[in-house]
């Protein structure tokens, strides 16, 4: 085995000696250049992420929204997701446009609480997060929604990279849906309460959680270090212009 190896190596050496020196230098230079270019290129690519994450409770309408954005149709409806939906595409509403449009990488993370840890897989390179809230059935889900939002807003991966968050009040096609102002107020109130109880549980837990808001003041979304905005949409009827606006604000076309 090693004998064979040695022979090979000596042969290669010989071959090298036969070649003109300039040629070898040129070859090495070309090789180095391509490596450098490749590294630069991949660095640029990762620094400009195009990932938008859809998160929110079970049944808030993420999957419908995902397909509405991709295909412009809710198809035949959805059932509870067991796995994330993940796709890189040009938004459906932009299909008619001319010129090259940068595709968006959209991820729909299931809302079932057992699947929530999946979120951590996608956050590290997210350019934005859309937190979908069911505006129709809001009150019974208010506290769990606030808890989920609290968890997201205190994650170091969100705070450190200041990932912009859009709180999307979905299902506004129904007249009984709550307004976004109301939902915002309620969420702020709940998060304010959570702040005291959660901070009590994890005083030494600085490692992966951040304090939220200003101590001594009631919590408002403006106090977050990352930008948090509120918008309305209806995934079912295709009223998603505010979502598309958010996406294109953070993933430039």
């Amino acid at each position: 085995m090693s004998m064979c190896m040695d022979q090979w190596i000596s042969q290669i050496e010989q071959w090298f000696h036969q070649q003109p020196v300039e040629q070898i230098y040129v070859a090495v230079a070309v090789l180095a250049l391509t490596v450098v270019l490749f590294v630069l290129f991949s660095l640029l690519k990762t620094s400009k992420s195009n990932t938008i994450v859809l998160a929110g409770l079970n049944g808030s309408g993420k999957t419908i929204l995902f397909y509405q954005l991709r295909d412009g149709s809710p198809h035949q409806g959805t059932v509870t997701s067991m796995e994330p939906n993940d796709g890189t595409f040009v938004l459906h509403s932009e299909l008619g446009k001319k010129g090259k449009i940068k595709p968006v990488h959209l991820v729909d993370v299931p809302g079932h609480s057992r699947l929530k840890p999946k979120l951590d897989e996608f956050l590290p390179n997210a350019a934005g997060l859309i937190f979908v809230v069911d505006a129709l059935d809001f009150l019974p889900n208010c506290r769990p929604a606030a808890e989920y939002l609290y968890d997201i807003l205190t994650k170091s991966s969100v705070v450190k990279r200041r990932i912009p968050v859009l709180i999307l009040c979905n299902k506004t096609d129904k007249v009984t849906a709550h307004s976004k102002e109301f939902i915002r107020k309620q969420l702020e109130k709940e998060i304010d309460k959570l702040r005291t109880s959660r901070n009590a549980i994890s005083t030494a837990d600085i490692s992966d959680e951040f304090m939220l808001g200003v101590p001594g003041e009631p919590f408002t979304l403006e106090q977050c270090r990352n930008k948090v905005t509120v918008a309305e949409a209806s995934g079912l009827t295709g009223e998603v212009s505010q979502v598309e606006q958010f996406i294109r604000e953070h993933v430039k076309p």
Partner: peptide, 12 residues
């Protein structure tokens, strides 16, 4: 019902 693990109904 036939659906994907992602939750989209394909056929019913």
């Amino acid at each position: 019902l036939i659906f994907t693990r992602g939750g989209l109904i394909l056929w019913s």
